[in-house]
Design a binder for these strands. Sequence first.
RNA 1: GGGGCUGUAGCUCAGCUGGUUAGAGUGCCGGUCUGUCACACCGGAGGUCGCGGGUUCGAGCCCCGUCAGCCCCGCCA
Length: 596
Amino acid sequence: MRGGGSIDSVSGTSRRTHRCGELRAQHVGQRVRLGGWVHRRRDLGGIVFIDLRDRAGIVQIAVGPGAPEEVRRVAGQVTSETVVEVEGDVTARPASMKNPDLATGDVEVQATTLTVVGPAATPAIPVARGKGEELAAEELRLKYRHLDLRRPEMQANLILRHRLAQRARRTLSDLGFLEIETPVLTKPTPEGARDYLVPSRVHPGEFYALPQSPQLYKQLLMVAGLDRYFQIARCFRDEDLRNDRQPEFTQIDLEASFVGVEDVIGYVEAVLVALWDEAGQAVARPFPRIAWRDAMERYGTDKPDLRYDFPIADWTAQVKPLGVPFFQSALGNGARVRGLAVKGGGALSRKDVDQLADAAKQLGGAGLAWVKRQGEQVSGSVAKYFTATALGALGVGDGDAGLMTVGLDRVTSPVMDRVRQEVIHRLGGAPKAAHAFCWVVDFPLFEPDPETGRPVFAHHPFTAPHPDDVARLDSDPLGCRALHYDAVYNGSELGSGSIRITDPAVQRRVFAHLGMSPAEAEARFGFLLSGLQAGAPPHGGFAIGFDRVVMALAGAESMRDVIAFPKTTAARALFEGAPAPANPADLAALHIEVKR
RNA sequence: GGGGCUGUAGCUCAGCUGGUUAGAGUGCCGGUCUGUCACACCGGAGGUCGCGGGUUCGAGCCCCGUCAGCCCCGCCA
């Protein structure tokens, strides 16, 4: 409680008693002072209504013929988005004048004073939008971010984000995790994403890197015996962007000691369930699990959308004897025919199917073959090779469609993943569940390098091999599984984690697999290796992509809508104009010469 | 790095097969109006058609280049 007078909530300050959006019937009869932005003004001549807005909402200010002359004068000329302070009496609106669309719609404030405290130029983009009116172009929304962030939708997203962050903190703190900060000026890492570099003034030619994640620090905190750590950590990766990828983003990062996979999964489920609860969504634990290999086989991706349960199937055996030319030439050398039986797929138009095929082609597939079944009638690009019976055996029933492609899994998986997603999108059927969480487990430790075919690490090089596979580390690297797990929600990867290597000998072998000499490994990761030699507890952890969680719970189409000041897809900040050329004196002090 | 979409009034958009003075809604400015809530009504101002080049008698429209925003592939241990 601050200030004096009739303040009845924490919203009050020395200049106001309430926030605009807080007023309800219970406040009728009270004298209030408010501050806010003029959302809209309706001037009827003898009476003026002002919709006054702050972060809590909108309330109607009425300035009638009985109001003081000065109040009527100001009300008659205030413009949109001007900041005003109002004093007045909260009155009940007569039944016929209530506004059921407004939380404050049962009341209004009869202004007795009205003062402009922050005159506003005509806004470059509208804040108050009419029903059905389009949003301003995203470029302008980013350029005039202070205006875009005034919109109630954006404020709701940021308020939700705040509540989720607080709930994550409380949940982890209650589980005994300590919130510990780690450096933002760190050491460049040789693998992984490109680093953002920060030149050192004191050490010519040397650079800090912004962290891609606090990975090594949190492991050292475990070595140090802090036992359970978490942090809502900013991470930086200088890679190309997407609608759900920003160059700087936020993780709920955690690590715990004396744990196995089950423990970490338990902690993360506890946090995710709490976050969904915070947003009013009930979800059940435990989340189902799916082995990476099964996810790739059934959904063509390591982040399957399990809201819909039609899986990709191997149709090679059934289709091969039919002699479809499209397939005959492509089969062999490990190629398979993989298909999707689409319930109700008869509803897909010819145009839909063509667009699916186009999408498939973009991913380098051989193309998409399709059939539709209508009773005993079979139509489609490869219809003449199929009978209704043959389709029935593949699960393609009356009114359904079959979509298929051929090739190596490396190509058919992404193609069928994309086709499956597009079909879901186009048919728009009801999902079997609104919230489909799952754990993807048993990831491979290595994957073949697309260019050389050599095994390279699928994750970061601190991920422990599956204990059953350690013996094959050198003989059969591609067959080794990792103690790595991803949390997936409705087809979106929310985060990943692993049990870490704590045996320095194993860690050295893994570095060797990356092609690092012992000396190199020492130079780059010496502090980790010496940590592991100093007595390291078994430990593992996880990082939840916080921005993606907020996106999911806010129903946002883009990560930019849940970040106050995001970058464009070209990694520019349009409001402030970053990045920008540095001035020559600064560059000189940093021992940097720019080549153009 | 590659592919696609978009760029016309402050904002959102239309602009036909290349043709004469580039339109609408909204916002803005002025006016009328005592119960509106996207107030209503009357009037007005407002344009480097992203930028540069080319084709053409003539380009908002066609061609080349370029910039910006967005979407996708690559990339993101």
